[in-house]
């Protein structure tokens, strides 16, 4: 499967849940971050991360969360509290000023984004892309759309290795990967052209194979290994989506 996939293969109720239910849960959490007070949103971040730890995927989620959310929170705190000039700005050091409004803004937006990142990471860490695609098939997605999601996931590793092989081969021929900006820019076509040419050759072959198999002959695809969908999950999805719509409506109303 694709390299760099965040999926963490452990046994948990969340891993067994239908990916569509988890997607609805993510939509609900995203909408929740727009109606909860900032302190509650940070509490929600803590809860999501604790849940990831309890379910045995803490390492994967926390590492990625630290790499994605922490730089964002640091950036927004610095920019909002120190650099943007708010009405209550007080001089701090040199040209910098500090503002309570800016800090409050940073806590609010930082918490919201951190919660969305944490919830998204729990989703992708507990859901293998292939299971998500089977869930889409079972839900009746058109084969073309499911193909567009599935095929790149299956090709990334091959293309990554091919790009590396092209880079090594061109470096052996004397292509300079270091040096001045312009000379590095001039190296791009030598690395990209072989990759694109091969991709176009394969696209032709794949299209013929797919057409031969009658890939788009039917509006819906069947799956040999259906994704588990517990009896309570369908009503749960409806409730989660209804709550999300309600929360968005409340946010727009207030």
């Amino acid at each position: 499967m694709a390299s760099g996939v965040l999926y963490s293969p452990v046994e948990s109720w969340l891993h067994r849940a239908n990916p569509l239910t988890k997607l609805c849960g993510l939509v609900w959490i995203v909408s929740l971050t727009f109606v909860l007070p900032p302190a509650w949103v940070w509490g929600l971040v803590g809860l999501i991360l604790l849940m990831a730890l309890a379910l045995g995927m803490g390492r994967a989620v926390l590492q990625r969360f630290a790499a994605t959310a922490l730089p964002f929170v640091a950036s927004i705190s610095i920019v909002q509290a120190l650099f943007i000039v708010h009405p209550d700005a007080r001089p701090l050091i040199g040209p910098l000023s500090i503002s309570d409004i800016g800090l409050a803004h940073a806590v609010s937006i930082g918490g919201r984004v951190a919660a969305i990142i944490a919830a998204s990471l729990v989703l992708v860490t507990s859901t293998h892309p292939s299971v998500l695609l089977r869930a889409f098939d079972a839900a009746g997605w058109p084969p073309a759309l499911a193909f567009l999601f599935a095929s790149p996931l299956l090709m990334i590793e091959t293309f990554g290795n091919r790009a590396k092989a092209i880079r090594d081969a061109q470096a052996t021929r004397g292509l300079r990967l270091k040096g001045r900006f312009l000379s590095r820019v001039k190296s791009i076509p030598a690395l990209v052209a072989p990759l694109v040419t091969t991709a176009l050759i394969e696209a032709d072959e794949r299209a013929h194979v797919l057409a031969g198999r009658g890939f788009r002959a039917h509006a819906r695809r069947t799956t040999l290994e259906p994704v588990v969908d517990a009896p309570f999950e369908r009503p749960l999805r409806i409730v989660l989506l209804a709550l999300a719509i309600l929360q968005i409506a409340v946010r727009l109303w207030l």
Partner: peptide, 28 residues
């Protein structure tokens, strides 16, 4: 969208993602 274009789009998505790796190698 024809099947050929569909396959081209899938390849283009991967080229986009791998393009980032090429960029990293060139440190641009």
């Amino acid at each position: 969208i024809s099947t050929r274009v569909l396959v081209l789009i899938a390849a283009a998505i991967v080229i986009n993602i791998v393009g980032g790796q090429i960029n990293d190698a060139l440190r641009l």
